[in-house]
Design a protein around this nucleic acid. Structure first.
Lengths: 252, 252
DNA sequence: CGTGCGCTTGATAATGGTCAAGACGCGTGG
DNA sequence: CCACGCGTCTTGACCATTATCAAGCGCACG
């Protein structure tokens, strides 16, 4: 019933298309998210020079795998990815979902080896940022250096949020929080904060929030019964965002 | 029954004492942990110049508080600290324990505001590293820049480990993992891997691992009954490290 | 048109939380 | 030095939440 408008909606309406290799950081409409720094235009050009835009990766394809050599970090231009680790007994821990404008792969810097795998949840266009070049450029551009310190710090604070969520909150609260997070990230990209299509499966949500599929499904049913949202498979509509906030127990 | 030998054991036996303000990075016996980088001696001197060594902080004193302005990151010279966030409903999520040689405070970079509080679990000596100076120095010393990217990346991978632990592992597994982690960090500082004093309370352990005090206590009792370790209040002796590894379910 | 995967729903079980009581240990003050 | 009191830890009984097991539905894809 739903048509994939993602690519068009995401970038097509502005100056560039997500799959257009000519896109550069200067005209990318995501740069407010991806590069919220006071880079002079000449700086942006220099950054542009080191960024590689490759052909889109398909659903279920890997961007990198755990234990691959670390070479680059990646910015999402369109589509969504999940990062995940596989535990010794074969279960999957999703460590993050990455939407357009967001950057992933920074966990690989510590040991020059990716600490997690990254897989496309739908067709995705990616900017590859070779880390060695980025390091060199960072010594020349203090703004860029600061920006990457901040990006990594943000990843830390977000992981800490998730730690708190997992350790202190009920299934209802975890899922309400995730819905609000996705809603906010949509809003940041000027998309609807109340109606969207989940790019990930129920299993992925469970593996992110430390819950089983059954529990995820039951919570969605419950939320629907409470008229907090309407759920049609992956299509979500938030009907009562205030009620959802109360369920998430995050205050506000 | 146990005498606090920490300061003596920690640094006194080598060239410097933890509470000696004359200590510098070059002669600090923790520098293999704190600065595992190929810094030339002149580089170390430059780094030394920006580092501030203040008087020890006492048990229960704060190094910084959530929402304080972010100015510095900190290296632990002796003692132990916990970093924690307070949830909206007043509960405490411990996000990490920091032992000598480890660095904390990096979560404050993202928003120029500390995202967590840090409190001493026992008297602690700290090196303060003003972040602005560190940034400036990093543009001049690519090794130092890389080192800090790596430190932050390590913080990310450690948070992801904790996320996995919280979301996939039982109470037994969580506590066994923590004991093994403390054991390994002791070994790295040339202390006993099998006998140590826990610097944190049962409540702190619970708030770190997402468990109640009662559960923490029960798990310790169970482990003792299984002859995996002997517990005398905060004194821990690991009796069967292999058995503990099996309980932790981390393979090996 | 069938097969399979993803999702939902129900019944049951287990893990850990909650509440309560008591022990132990430590620091303070008499 | 001992007594008191509080905070921390332990243990038990009971309960709630979520996992597990099982079955069935429906859409997508071959």
């Amino acid at each position: 019933m739903s048509i994939h408008l993602d690519n068009i909606v995401e970038e097509g309406g502005f100056k560039s298309c997500a799959h257009d290799f000519q896109t550069n950081c200067g005209n990318c409409r995501l740069n407010a998210i991806c590069l919220p720094l006071a880079l002079e235009s000449e700086d942006v050009e220099q950054l542009d020079d080191i960024i590689q835009r490759s052909k889109p990766i398909q659903k279920n394809q890997h961007l990198y795998r755990e234990e691959d050599d670390f070479k680059s970090v990646y910015a999402v231009r369109s589509g969504t990815l999940k990062a995940y680790k596989t535990t010794d007994d074969g279960r999957e821990q999703v460590t993050g979902f990455y939407f357009p404008g967001e950057i992933l792969g920074m966990d690989g810097i510590a040991n020059n080896t990716h600490a997690s795998s990254a897989k496309a949840l739908e067709t995705a266009a990616i900017c590859e940022i070779p880390f060695e070049s980025l390091e060199k450029l960072s010594t020349l551009m203090p703004n860029l250096q600061r920006h990457f310190f901040q990006l990594m710090s943000r990843e830390i604070t977000e992981d800490q949020q998730l730690i708190t969520l997992l350790s202190k909150n009920s299934a209802d609260e975890r899922i309400a929080s995730l819905m609000l997070s996705i809603s906010a990230r949509n809003a940041r990209r000027k998309l609807s904060a109340t109606a969207f299509r989940l790019p990930m499966s129920r299993v992925d949500i469970g593996n992110y929030l430390g819950l089983t599929v059954e529990t995820v499904s039951r919570v969605f049913s419950r939320m629907q019964k409470m008229d907090l949202l309407s759920v049609d498979n992956k299509e979500i509509e938030i009907l009562d965002i205030q009620g959802l906030r109360e369920m998430a127990n995050l205050g506000g």
